[in-house]
């Protein structure tokens, strides 16, 4: 029951945070003077295209850009009615992209779940690589196993992602006939889900997952190794040894369990780091994630699109942190029973 209460509490704090984030995002996006439409109107006036001006003026009133900033905010979120009644984020209307001249929801539709997919795969990759390597490096510290793992790790940290991407594409295509660029074969784009489409996506994801995950995995591995080394010198490890526990079991049951906390706590940080870190990679690899859209929107002050993408990344982060917080409560009795006992 305690846990359920905590989950509810955590969910509400998440909503509260999300609300604060929405204000920040909106303010920051509106900090530079002017907006997409006023820039465009100025440009059209200068070149004397009157009909374009009319359309832009229409969009300005349609999306309430002529109103004070606080009103714009309330309308955008959906707290107060705009020119067309309540129609904001809460109601599921994400606004209009002036750059692409289409509703935001339509543009990012596919990209959203592809982003989630690519990044989840990358996170999974990070954990699958970092966990065994980190534990091994700590258990065999100061031997060739440790040094090799460390070397590979630093290599992963030091290699620029896009460079790694290009190299992998070249060799992946040459030796394994892996596809280059994109997240699926162009014939499947806009098609309904099918077995072949899934297969194509999976095949296309191999290189991006590797590229986006490597540096994260390297950093995580080093952290886990350091945590494990700390734990290995603790007296409870000695106790377990004095019980007659075999080394592998001992390692898994006691120090790993203890070293796991920071590992779990990192889930929250990992997600946004990967989303924002993978913008460049997505551009280079031609991935249809929201990364490239974010870049384009920020460059042209396409405010609704940019704001939506930022809100989405914030939501991912908050969900990640919530998951890791709740896992920690489940995993660590000291947090669960905090305040009781010593």
């Amino acid at each position: 029951m305690m846990f359920l209460r905590y989950a509810v509490y955590r969910f509400f704090t998440m909503l509260l945070t999300l609300w604060v984030v929405s204000i920040l995002v909106f303010v920051i996006i509106n900090l530079p003077p002017g907006d997409y439409l006023s820039n465009q109107i100025a440009e059209l006036r200068a070149t004397g295209q009157a009909e374009g001006v009319a359309k832009a003026e229409f969009l300005r009133t349609e999306y309430a850009l002529d109103r004070p900033l606080w009103e714009q905010y309330l309308i955008w979120v959906g707290f107060s009615p705009g020119p067309n009644g309540f129609s904001g984020l809460i109601q599921g209307d994400f606004g209009w992209s002036f750059e692409f001249d289409r509703p935001v929801g339509e543009i990012v539709g596919d990209a959203l779940w592809l982003t989630v997919l690519v990044n989840l795969a990358a996170v999974l990759f990070v954990y699958l690589i970092a966990l065994p390597l980190g534990v091994l490096a700590a258990a065999k510290s100061e031997t060739w196993v440790d040094y090799t793992a460390g070397f590979v790790g630093y290599l992963g940290l030091a290699t620029p992602n896009f460079l790694l991407a290009l190299i992998l594409f070249y060799y992946g295509h040459k030796y394994f006939n892996l596809p280059i660029g994109g997240l699926m074969d162009p014939v499947y784009e806009g098609q309904p889900m099918s077995w072949l489409k899934v297969k194509s996506i999976l095949l296309h994801m191999i290189v991006p997952t590797f590229v986006i995950g490597t540096s994260g995995a390297a950093a995580m591995m080093q952290r886990l190794r350091a945590n494990m080394l700390d734990e290995l010198s603790k007296p409870y490890v000695e106790t377990a040894k004095a019980k007659g526990l075999a080394p592998a079991k001992l390692l898994a049951k006691y120090p790993l369990r203890m070293a796991f906390n920071p590992f779990v706590a990192d889930i929250g940080n990992l997600l946004p780091a990967m989303v924002s870190g993978s913008v460049l990679v997505s551009v280079v690899l031609g991935l249809q994630t929201i990364g490239p859209y974010l870049l384009a929107a920020l460059k042209s002050q396409d405010q609704f699109l940019a704001a939506f993408v930022l809100m989405f990344v914030a939501l991912l982060t908050l969900i990640g942190t919530m998951i890791s917080d709740m896992l920690l409560v489940l995993l660590d009795p000291r947090i669960r029973y905090g305040g009781r006992g010593a």
Binding site: P235, A242, M258
Partner: peptide
Amino acid sequence: FQEPMRSLSPLHR
């Protein structure tokens, strides 16, 4: 051992 707190794992019953 000397320190019963640190010599027992805090995560296991």
